[in-house]
Amino acid sequence: MESLQVGWIGLGNAGYPMAACLAKRGHRLLVRDADPARSVQFVEKYPKCRMATLDAESFKDCDVVVTMLPNGEVVRDVLFGDHGIAGHLKPGSVVIDTSSSSPFHTRDLGGELAKLSVDLVDSPITQERLHAIDDRGATLMVGSDSPDALQKVMPILKDMSTHVFPMGGLGTGHTMKTLNNYVSVGSIIALCDALVTGQKLGLDPQTMIDVLNVGTGVNFSTKYSMRNLKSFDTGYQLELLVKDVKIAKEVIEQSGFESELPGLALKYLEDSLKLVETGADHSECIKSWEQRAGVEIAKTERRGDETRLQRSGSVSQKEPVLYF
């Protein structure tokens, strides 16, 4: 099959390693990021790739454009904003949105792109283990209304990841992503409940984490993002987690299913948001649990198989956990 010209927009914590997966497999990407330094860094490491200009026409020769951006609003602005690229994409091209977006907004966006003879495929990501995105181990959930568009981009998706799941029509990828995140949020809330309760009853929170990780309570937060308690450097913002819960609440309500848990989860996390600074790490949500419980979770620094209890301070992990 003839090689496709692939454009890539968004080289953040997730976008950079995912784009690198394609570059390592021979794709000559045309890349752009809001921070030009990220693009410079990328093309210096992968010299067969090129930097896109800021012109709206910069992606006009691309067969496929991948967006990996913070949310659907940013995706829409990149496509249809004042300097949007959508009107300059060639007919028959495909946009792959890997961002975490509302499935309803995705369907609306797909309709607008269809008027320009451009197809939209939603393919958000998650991961089962730390750094899976670095070695094609991420999980892609894919939605498309066009069998031809899906067939066209499938080789690209498989070069990004070995775990590619077609979910159905346009928006189903984002539906699966938001439900995945909703399940994960449930584990975060239960973990915060357990940690403050355990400490009030005399348990060591770090030992609790160790027990959970070899018990039925194990989850991504216990294994990775909250394993080193109060490090607060997972690379995923609390604002984004709140955004994801809002989307999940909307999806569940629109399905006609009634559940009180989405609203309760959203309330707890929005309360947490009031206590932290803008841009705070999602793991800082524990602060509102501490406030309600009247306790301060003890901090433990890990060194090999040993632990050292601290009552204050923060010990950074070597690199962000990247919670998706």
Rank of each mutant, 00 (worst) to 15 (best):
K200S: 07
G169C: 00
K246R: 07
T178H: 00
D210P: 03
F257V: 15
T175F: 08
E253F: 11
K249V: 04
L238V: 10
I247R: 05
D193V: 05
A248N: 04
T216I: 08
L229G: 04
S255Y: 12
G198N: 06
K246W: 07
K249A: 12
S225G: 15
T207N: 06
G215Q: 12
L203V: 14
G235W: 02
T175H: 11
D159F: 13
D193K: 01
I189N: 00
N219E: 05
T222L: 07
M226G: 01
L238N: 04
L266Q: 06
G168K: 01
Y268E: 09
L179N: 02
Q199D: 05
M208H: 10
V196A: 03
E258S: 09
L264C: 02
G217R: 10
G171S: 02
T197R: 09
G263V: 11
D193L: 05
K200V: 15
D159A: 00
I247W: 02
L170F: 06
M226Q: 14
I209Y: 14
N228Q: 15
Y236H: 07
G173R: 01
S161F: 09
M176R: 01
I252T: 01
M167S: 10
L264D: 04
A190F: 12
K158R: 12
L212I: 13
P205W: 10
L195G: 07
K158C: 09
K200H: 11
T216N: 03
L191W: 06
V196P: 03
G171R: 01
I247G: 10
F165S: 06
L170Q: 08
Q199F: 11
N181M: 04
Q254C: 09
K243Q: 09
T172I: 12
T222K: 00
K246P: 12
D233R: 08
K230V: 05
S259W: 10
L170I: 10
K223R: 14
K230F: 14
D233A: 07
H163F: 15
K200I: 13
F232T: 05
L203Y: 14
Y224D: 10
E250F: 15
N180C: 05
E253W: 15
K249T: 01
P205Q: 02
E239T: 11
M226L: 04
P166K: 01
S231Y: 12
F220C: 10
K223H: 15
I252M: 08
V183I: 08
